[in-house]
Write a protein that binds this DNA or RNA. Structure first.
Length: 277
DNA sequence: CACGACTCCTGCTGGC
DNA sequence: TGCCAGCAGGAGTCGT
């Protein structure tokens, strides 16, 4: 389940391998992901130099350019996607949908559940965020603009429970189901509490908890990068030690209370009723 | 506008 | 042991 930390770790692993590299080939095997992989990539990308590997929310952005072609390859890992370098002669598996071939290496995109995205936004790098998928993205939680005051104001018109609000990527990007539960646990705020009924003084703490939760996860992942880039958080390769997530019925690590599981907006939430209010 | 329900997809798990 | 229902989840879309 790639959330912001997994995607950022993926980016950190990819950047040194891809930046300044030249694409020599593209293979599309299963065009239908969340959207169809544009077939014209086969004509556009070869010859392109990768100028930068960026991230916006859970989207990876590869800025590409060659004579007459300029654009951004936008990749989303969905919930089961991963990117890894494979030997050039390695035969593809069942869910290997897309290859980016560079000199001496192949970056392979696999995504069993096909919630991922590979699309192309033509134009200069700074225009990539005008792509429809990116234009509506919310604030970056690790940026300086994401403050307690900002979140307080943003929550003023949200009467529903805070947890789905934190997961709303049009509001704040990158917080998925796992880190939403974990951040609220750290902050001592119940996932059920109405967003506009959180005391103004608690938002600094919530923002700090979100930052810490995401940063810790990135740090944990960064230490595990080698020659291959993984983002399959579900495999538990580098996900942070969960305080409450998937621990229903187990004791709270802080107070010994029992962790409870509920459903909100169709998703599981985990929290400690004794220390989250 | 805000919000929940529904949808896409496949693999794994648990119950019988 | 085998089968199948249910669940997992990011995010767009639709209906209320």
């Amino acid at each position: 389940m790639p959330e912001l930390p997994e995607v950022e770790v993926c980016r950190l692993g990819l950047a040194p391998e891809l930046e300044d590299g030249v694409i020599v080939g593209v293979v599309i095997r299963a065009p239908k992901l969340r959207q169809v992989i544009p077939p014209e990539l086969i004509l556009l990308l070869p010859g392109c130099r990768i100028l930068a590997v960026r991230r916006r929310g859970k989207y990876l952005l590869l800025d590409c350019r060659r004579e007459g072609v300029e654009g951004c390859l936008i990749i989303h890992l969905g919930m089961s996607g991963n990117l890894r370098f494979v030997p050039p002669d390695m035969s593809p598996g069942k869910h290997d949908h897309f290859d980016l071939v560079l000199a001496g290496k192949v970056l392979r995109f696999a995504d069993p559940r096909r919630f991922g995205v590979v699309v192309w936004q033509p134009g200069p790098p700074e225009g990539a965020e005008s792509h429809p998928l990116l234009a509506t993205q919310g604030i970056e939680p690790l940026s300086g603009e994401f403050t307690g005051d900002w979140l307080h104001a943003a929550c003023a018109r949200r009467s529903g429970p805070i947890k789905p609000v934190l997961m709303d990527s049009h509001m704040v990007v990158g917080i998925g189901n796992i880190y939403a539960s974990e951040s609220l646990y750290r902050a001592g705020i119940s996932p059920l509490r109405a967003a506009n009924r959180i005391g103004g003084g608690r938002f600094d703490g919530l923002v700090a908890s979100i930052r810490e939760t995401l940063s810790d996860a990135i740090a944990a992942g960064g230490s595990s990068i080698r020659d291959y880039v993984h983002s399959d958080g579900g495999a538990g390769c580098f996900q942070i030690q969960a305080g409450v997530y998937d621990r229903a019925g187990e004791p709270c690590l802080r107070c010994g209370g029992v962790v409870r599981q509920i459903r909100q907006a169709g998703r599981s939430s985990f929290y400690c009723p004794a220390c989250q209010h």
